[in-house]
Amino acid sequence: MTDKPQLYEQASQYRHWRFTRESLDKLRAANNERGIERVLRGLREEAHVDDDHSMLETRVSEATNNLLTPAEELELIDYYLQMIKVYAQSYRKNGLLKPEALDNVKATAINFMKRFYLHNVVFDYPPKSIMLTCFYLATKVENAFMKIDDFVRPLQAAETKRGSKVQTKNEDILELEFVVIQSLQFELAVHHPYRAAYGLYLEMQAYINDAALLKDVFDRSHHYIDLSLFTDLVFLYQPPQIALGAFKLAAREKDLDIDTYLTQRFDARLLEMLFTVLDDIQDTVSAFKNTSQKDAQVIDRKLILCRNPEKNPSSKLYKKKAAGQGDVPYVSDSDSD
């Protein structure tokens, strides 16, 4: 127990991925502002590609009228974060993801995507493809590796079933791996509240007599931890605090008193601080709402008009730049650099 806090303070999650609500807001606003500048610059650059300036004004005004606010960016990202949950379930069903790896893969993928958008905007990288790359990277990081073909096959099957025109290809996922890992600053170890919740459960057994009810509350806390992953709590509090917040929500729902345990376990001053934290966690989790598919579609449609062509593989500008680079193959063995 003694060296635990110190060790956690060494973790990259603690050193580099801790924020306040204000600093998150500021960061996202600044990213959005710079992102918009890049969109406009990219459109002007694209007009130079074949010296066709006739469409420039239309394109710029289209983009300007459809620019996403930081809040809309977040809504769209949230929608695709939900998709991680859906995909995780289907990989589990087809046996590619073992049940015991499910929680960690899902939580890590969600965390990666949230971290990614602290260093990027949706104008450059739309969340749909980033979501898949984060998911695939998370399977590797959480020791649940599957071959890229196995990962992509179910996606393609679903696309065919839906009658979708576009087919996800291996490269779509792999080409973004480096952008993602760079944005994560190569920090891949993520701590989640699940393990802490189990620790709490074991500890509470010494304080709470109704073992069946406690077990019920512990099981239910899993649901609240799942929800917490989608919120910004991961950037604000430590995993054990989030676990305890989830426990409190579950206890309230199941009518179990855990405050007695808390008062026995912690001294009064610490407890006062802890309760403030726990209240915030409970409020945030309770207030969490998914973005609806309809809302996501509206934002997605706007995004088509305000993407940065420099990063859009189907734009003239992108193709020209790629051609200029002599089309670097994805797999490179060269020692030239």
Binding site: K140, K147, L188, A189, D333
Partner: peptide
Amino acid sequence: IKLGNMRSGLDMSAIREVKALRELR
């Protein structure tokens, strides 16, 4: 880290090494 012939992108050894060493001091 050589990623030649890595059909599935970044390989597990690279991921493991980076993941571990980023946390250890």
